[in-house]
């Protein structure tokens, strides 16, 4: 099959790259270079493997590729931490998923601006989002931000719809409490 005009794919990727980078930045807990690498890997996969697919499928494919790359990144980090940084490890939660290790806490996020209520809320929210376990993060961002339904999110995450609902529910619970606490402090 002849290659589709690469400018179509270029335009598509340009339209999603900022959101993809933000997603990767949250997933890598603020590691900019790693987030860029993940996004570039996903873009390369789209150009090389999926350019011939129908344009209507590109969105779902890109989410799938991006979150697959994010999962790979976490697996590599987890493996490295297990062998080289056991004293920093955060262990696993009840689902057997990796919990954020102390080294993952993003200290690069600037202190909240006292003058702007929304900015403070946003800071709190982003910190909480960064601290969520990966699968909860992914479920929340795909559902709440990308607007995918449960089935599409399950496809992008490579898990069952039941898992998506569980992760989403837990993420909502944590983030709701964070935002409510922030509102009370105001």
């Amino acid at each position: 099959m002849p290659p589709r005009d690469s400018s179509d794919m270029d335009a598509f990727l340009r339209s999603v790259e900022r959101r993809a980078y933000t997603t990767a930045l949250v997933a890598t807990r603020g590691k900019r270079e790693d987030a860029l690498d993940i996004v570039q890997d996903a873009m390369t996969a789209m150009f090389r493997s999926y350019a011939a697919h129908p344009v209507a499928e590109w969105g779902a494919l890109f989410h799938r590729v991006l979150h697959s790359r994010i999962n790979d990144w976490h697996r590599r980090r987890s493996l490295r931490a297990r062998f080289f940084l056991p004293w920093f490890g955060g262990g696993t939660d009840a689902d057997g998923e990796e919990q954020p290790a102390t080294e993952f806490v993003d200290e690069s996020i600037p202190a909240p601006d006292e003058a702007v209520h929304r900015a403070r809320q946003q800071e709190k929210f982003m910190r909480a989002l960064h601290a969520l376990p990966l699968r909860q993060q992914q479920a929340f961002m795909l559902r709440a931000w990308e607007g995918l339904d449960t089935a599409q999110t399950a496809q992008a995450m490579g898990c069952s719809e039941g898992s998506v609902k569980t992760h989403m529910s837990r993420a909502m619970q944590v983030l709701r409490e964070i935002l409510q606490d922030g509102a009370r402090e105001e």
């Binding site: 990727l13 790259e17 900022r18 980078y21 860029l36 570039q40 873009m43 390369t44």
Partner: peptide, 22 residues
């Protein structure tokens, strides 16, 4: 939307490299 210029340029560069790999 608040990504700085440097990050936006890095993303454009990443996209160009992905296209070149194709």
């Amino acid at each position: 939307n608040a990504l700085d210029r440097q990050t936006r340029m890095a993303l454009a560069d990443a996209r160009a490299r992905a296209a070149a790999s194709r």
